[in-house]
Design a protein around this nucleic acid. Structure first.
Lengths: 217, 217
DNA sequence: CGGGGAAATCCTGCATGCAATTTTGCTAAA
DNA sequence: TTTAGCAAAATTGCATGCAGGATTTCCCCG
């Protein structure tokens, strides 16, 4: 069996979430319970439970008696989400400056150096992967699972809109330079500087997104 | 009918949440599906859906095949929750300083003055109510429903642990003085000062809680 | 040819029933 | 007396069926 101790509803929630995030279910499309049940080879009951779980994360919109649709984010809502994520990431950086252990600070330093090499080699794929690790360090480093889970949830929701962030020329070097400011503040234990630096960093990422978005495809 | 367009599961989630928050269901106690279904005069299906919804908010702990229990917060987790709420409230203040409308700023000023009168009269009940309004102003004033809903959710979860915050002598005046700093920063549009002031304010509230908690009842 | 309304169809919400797993209680042996 | 083991009871997970509301379709009228 492929049963990992999880219940059907939980696996369904995870699979449906993946399907939404990878574009299988487009924003605004109806999530028919019968269709989902047939698609995943189960009955409607666990599907309904999974939908409720997803609705709580904001990934889908559940309208009583009118079914579920994949949450469609307007431009305004996207702005709100980006601002929220920026603030949470900045908060993670702030708390990390206050409460990272020496080992965690060392890991941050090492990763920052390694990413410098990736910039020199202009290895976009590896840098993108390392960038995820970079931010993950702050999620764990803030030692506050409540905040980090909120941030992770927002990052997941925004993932589809962040695909091309390192494509523009010079982005890598710029990102790395911004990271350096954040790392410096955190290692120095300067909470407010860490907050400001991370906020500036993620705001610039958001700007990069806006640029890509406002250019006709 | 008492049906407000809501579904049974949603009303159940709300009622069960209330029952947990007002102490009807104590932390750690099992939430038996049959019992809940009988108690609220429905079947197990909507109960299960409500439980899943509550689990997403962190109010209950849902262990596969082993039932649901009211989330019991350890002292450590409580600390984490208070820190998270402090950071979110501070973020709300920060954003409010940047984006409150003139009308919202005026409301804040008016409320702050009115609360000054309540302090003079030592009207704890009215001050407590006004305090809720005070914080609500920042939730709406930050103009970011994602962040404000997170903060509201945390405030709800922490409500049972904040009951006695204004009992100690001089708390009212102190709270009002701290509010004054926050209001001043917000009205001046000083984002970082607003952040710091609100953070300090809620941290002191947390300290007050700790004092009450460490004294044997 | 277009619009409004009614009926039919579809879908969601909920109850019930069964299977599987966990928990509990009892017995027996060390 | 304590512990290991087993069986029975209880509880969760899931499927199915039915009722009520929403949506679509189609027909009739303007």
């Amino acid at each position: 069996m492929s049963d990992d101790g999880q219940t059907r509803a939980e696996k369904l929630a995870s699979e449906i979430a993946d399907a939404i995030l990878d574009g299988t279910f487009e924003p605004g499309s109806r999530l028919d319970e019968h269709m989902l049940a047939a698609r995943y080879g189960t009955s409607r009951t666990p599907v309904r439970e999974a939908l409720r779980q997803l609705a709580a994360t904001g990934l889908i919109d559940l309208r009583p008696r009118r079914g579920a649709i994949v949450a469609l984010v307007t431009s305004d809502q996207l702005e709100v989400l980006f601002v929220a994520m920026g603030e949470l990431e900045a908060t993670c950086a702030r708390l990390s400056a206050l409460s990272m252990t020496p080992i965690e600070r060392r890991r941050l330093e090492v990763l920052q150096d390694a990413m410098g090499d990736l910039v020199a080699q202009n290895d976009v794929a590896a840098y993108t992967a390392a960038n995820t690790s970079f931010h993950t360090l702050f999620y764990t480093g803030c030692h506050n699972p409540v905040i980090s889970e909120m941030a992770i949830g927002l990052r997941r929701r925004l993932a589809p809109f962040r695909q091309a962030q390192f494509r523009a020329v010079g982005r890598l070097a710029r990102s790395h330079a911004e990271h350096a400011v954040v790392v410096g503040a955190v290692l120095a234990g300067n909470a407010s500087a860490a907050h400001a630096a991370m906020l500036r960093h993620v705001s610039l990422v958001e700007d990069a997104f806006e640029e890509l978005r406002n250019v006709p495809a």
